[in-house]
């Protein structure tokens, strides 16, 4: 007996919803970033699961995930740089307080 594909997809869907929840409700910009990363992870899990359950002669699914991870890394680097420079300006990383266009 093997694990059906739908179980992987269900785990991925749950992960995505949790990430979405984090990105929507939390006020700290860092947790919002973590939420987005969790969502990207869910997408990657989906891609790999579909790759595994395809005929698998080509590496498309794996390479899509690879590029996804690359983009996530770039996003985190820039995102955290923005968080740090925003903190320097506002003395806070609370996304609700950062509403002024200029300071």
């Amino acid at each position: 007996m093997t694990i059906p594909l739908s179980h992987y997809l269900a785990v991925s869907a749950a992960l995505f919803s949790i990430g979405l929840f984090g990105a929507l409700t939390r006020r700290s910009a860092i947790i919002v970033l973590i939420g987005i990363e969790i969502m990207m992870n869910a997408a990657n899990l989906n891609l790999i699961a579909f790759w595994r359950y395809s005929d698998g002669t080509r590496a498309t699914g794996q390479l899509f995930t690879f590029f996804g991870i690359t983009i996530a890394a770039a996003e985190v680097a820039v995102g955290l740089a923005i968080v740090i420079s925003v903190y320097r300006l506002f003395q806070s990383t609370n996304v609700n307080e950062i509403s002024d266009m200029k300071k």
Binding site: N41, I48, I69
Partner: peptide, 21 residues
């Protein structure tokens, strides 16, 4: 999630996941 990648026989992606994430 890297462990799940290993379960799905995507070793390379699992290792990249650990390395980067």
């Amino acid at each position: 999630s890297a462990a799940l990648f290993f379960l799905l026989k995507a070793d390379f992606i699992g290792v990249v996941q650990i390395l980067i994430y």
